[in-house]
Amino acid sequence: MKTQMKAYQLQDASGVDGMKLVDLPMPEAGPGQVLVRIKAVSLNYRDLLTVRGGYGSRQKFPLIPLSDGAGVVETIGPGVTGLKVGDRVVSSFFESWHGGEAEESKLRSALGGALDGVLCEYRVFPEHAVVKAPAHLSDAAAATLPCAALTAWSAVVKCGQVKPGDVVLTQGTGGVSLFALQFAKLAGARVIATSSSDAKIEKLKLLGADETINYKTTPEWGKLARSLSGRGVDIVVEVGGVGTLNESIRATRIGGMIGFIGVLAGQAQSEPRISLMVMQQQRLQGVTVGSIDDLKAMIAAIALHKLEPVVDRVFPFAETKDAFAYMATGAHVGKIAITIP
């Protein structure tokens, strides 16, 4: 019986160099818990911010980073009834957000932030906090679902309530944006997708984007998107933040929704067009992942439609720091995963 496990642990906010591979005591499942052998994990932009100290004094150290993992139930504790040894499962982002509306107490249970994450060989979870993985997905693909996929699902399906004939605008080729494109197409919507690269635009077309815009060559892409959609788009999946918000407002129809998710574009170059948003009765909706109930609903849809996440590259556990460096380049299309032997 193993008495120790390997884990990557952030010792401080000095960046990737502050992340060390350490030996930790082997965890054990207690009442109502399961011990999961982690087989794959995936990176989110949030993880890059975490290792760079982007969360300031709120960040706990030492910390096992990453929220998104997939693995196999190794042992079960007393009282566990819904899972058995050998079940393939994925982690949930917020361990305490079972369902219902978000509350402060629920949002304090984020893996890889407030709580230790999944960049380790084994982790104990409450039974309710893991969900069975879609059978058709590899471990690396399943590991992309807890944060990026669920954030896109919450923006497009739960909050946006997209329906056939709607027009959804996505930004770039990161994990959230590509999942949003896929979910929008499953729902029968038209998708306008933006990117800074013509090569990446070709990949967006292969995934089903109906219209594409290179925002480098068309800086006022909001006006073009509005024109392409006829009356303005119904939903914008806003991952750029305040740096792209003005163009999103410009692109959105009267009464439409901007799902505000990320901060990838940096600071705004001009004052936000809040008055235009007000006059057009647009809704600015903050989106922070989702609940465990939402995760179950999304996984059911993924399993039904045999949806395949876009995984750009898979790194071995020993090359974890290289995976972070690759994410920092922004060259990826879709998700970056790490497999754990």
Rank of each mutant, 00 (worst) to 15 (best):
D47K: 09
D47C: 05
L48A: 10
L49C: 12
G53E: 07
G53M: 11
G54N: 07
G54E: 08
G54K: 11
R58D: 14
Q59D: 11
Q59M: 14
K60D: 04
K60I: 13
F61V: 05
P62W: 08
P62M: 10
P62L: 03
I64A: 02
I64E: 06
P65H: 12
L66Q: 04
S67T: 13
D68P: 11
G69Y: 08
G69P: 12
A70G: 05
V72F: 00
V73D: 11
V73G: 08
V73W: 10
E74K: 12
T75L: 06
G77V: 11
G77F: 15
G77H: 12
P78C: 06
P78I: 00
P78T: 13
V80F: 06
T81G: 08
G82W: 01
L83D: 09
K84A: 15
K84Q: 15
G86M: 13
G86I: 12
V89S: 13
V90I: 15
V90F: 09
S91F: 04
S91Y: 00
S92C: 12
F93Y: 15
F94Y: 13
E95N: 10
E95M: 14
H98F: 08
E101R: 12
E101L: 09
E101V: 03
E101D: 14
A102H: 00
A102M: 08
A102N: 06
E104G: 14
S105M: 02
L107D: 07
L107W: 07
R108Q: 13
R108E: 14
L111Y: 09
L111V: 01
L111W: 07
L115C: 04
D116P: 02
D116K: 06
G117F: 06
G117H: 04
V118Y: 05
L119P: 02
L119W: 02
E121L: 09
Y122M: 07
R123V: 03
R123A: 10
R123F: 01
F125T: 07
F125S: 02
F125Y: 15
F125D: 05
F125N: 10
P126D: 15
E127F: 03
E127G: 12
H128G: 03
H128Y: 08
A129Q: 06
A133L: 09
A133F: 08
A133W: 08
P134R: 04
A135G: 03
A135I: 05
H136P: 09
L137H: 05
S138V: 00
D139T: 05
D139P: 00
A140H: 05
A142E: 07
A142S: 12
T144G: 08
L145H: 06
L145I: 15
P146K: 10
C147A: 14
A149I: 07
A149Q: 06
L150G: 03
T151W: 05
T151R: 11
A152E: 02
S154W: 02
V156C: 00
V157L: 00
K158V: 15
K158G: 01
C159G: 00
C159A: 14
V162N: 03
G165D: 02
G165H: 12
D166N: 14
T170F: 04
Q171F: 00
Q171G: 01
T173W: 10
T173M: 11
G174E: 10
G174F: 12
G174C: 01
G174P: 04
